[in-house]
Design a protein around this nucleic acid. Structure first.
Lengths: 208, 208
DNA sequence: TAACAAAGTTTCCTTTTGGAAACTTATGTT
DNA sequence: AACATAAGTTTCCAAAAGGAAACTTTGTTA
């Protein structure tokens, strides 16, 4: 009795976005936990002591035989003194000094939604101060959107192609064309629609 | 039987950090979920349809009577088309803090140097987390450069036009073309030269 | 390579989650 | 107000998670 359960997650510091069941490189929570534990040089027994979860439970989580409850995940994060997002993101080697990540055109990590088609950039690097991604904006209709998008931090966007109307909470809407850019407080409600013939292409960079 | 279980979590979009047992305002996962559902204007029934979780289960999660499994949380995030961190973070109060700055194409603040022609963006806003600017790179020759460029923080760059070779201290040089991007630790020595016919056009964003 | 110890896995059982349906509480409508 | 209906909660039970201990594997030493 050791069937693997479905337990993937989509990598995303992604903002207001959607992750339907799309083909995005999934991360195994169990593997990730094992990595973390190993990196801390802990045995299951030691991890058990620190987290208050049974040795057997930890083993089962690592081998993806069970799906931990939120409570268990909290015990994990507090016990091992890590942040929750760390459980969901794969940190490809982060050398102490210099890190670099190149993303070729159109080769970012896809993250499609109904109205946007996000392409996450520099996904190899974790713990970044900024989160850059490109989006194709398909929507040309308000109805495609439910409400303001709102999240922590600041956001910069640059129109790479097409034309959009950018809405934000305390301002009048503006039209933005190729080459135009906006910088704004992302806690302020914001959203945009494409008004060009083809999909608009946009670069976003977020920092919190 | 409706005792509230302990179910707090520390808010963290926070990137690199550990959270020792610091006193950070704890967030109730259930409350947060309810907020999100309300903001999406969904009833429990509708949310149930979208997520595949039973109406009753959702109710119990919202009222913190149960601690959802990771699987359940995934169903929540994919079904409601939100991101996992959203479940853990309290959206900042949006007051008058909203700021915004639009920079039209070619209308940034010019800042020419010998080999670059910088155009600073969003200069109206001060105290920004990020510093975005475009550059025309004229240089096609190593001699135009003295040495590595090095400064605090992290840097993201995207090739808007042309083609360049990007050099950085601990890596092999790479050629980058329109649409390609790099993210790197700016303390690591870096520089670039244009290798296209016309000047290359580049977007930089720096954060420290 | 036998013997032992330590690390990890599986079993077995208890506790908790998650779902269907019954029940209760709000929100209209005539 | 009485009724109807929608939204939300609670109950009850099946299914899954979590823990203690038995078991297996890996590593070390004589």
């Amino acid at each position: 009795m050791s069937e693997k359960i479905q337990q993937d997650i989509y990598p995303s510091m992604m903002i207001s976005s959607q992750n339907k069941a799309e083909k995005i490189a999934p991360i195994k929570l169990g593997e990730r936990l094992k990595e973390i534990r190993k990196s801390l040089n802990l045995t299951l027994e030691e991890a058990s002591q620190k987290t208050g979860l049974a040795r057997s439970t930890l083993s089962k989580i690592e081998n993806e035989q069970i799906s931990p409850t939120f409570q268990a995940m909290q015990k994990l994060t507090t016990g091992l003194e890590i942040d929750l997002p760390q459980l969901f993101t794969t940190p490809k080697q982060v050398t102490a000094t210099g890190r670099r990540d190149i993303t070729r055109n159109e080769e970012g990590k896809a993250h499609p939604t109904s109205t946007y088609e996000h392409e996450l950039l520099a996904t190899q690097l974790t713990n970044k101060k900024m989160m850059p991604f490109k989006s194709k904006v398909r929507a040309r209709d308000f109805n495609d959107y439910s409400d303001w998008i709102r999240h922590d931090g600041e956001e910069f966007l640059l129109i790479l192609a097409g034309e959009i109307t950018f809405f934000s909470e305390f301002y009048e809407p503006v039209n933005l064309q190729q080459g135009d850019s906006v910088y704004y407080d992302a806690n302020m409600g914001h959203m945009l629609i494409s008004i060009s013939e083809q999909d608009a292409l946009i670069l976003w960079v977020t920092a919190s």
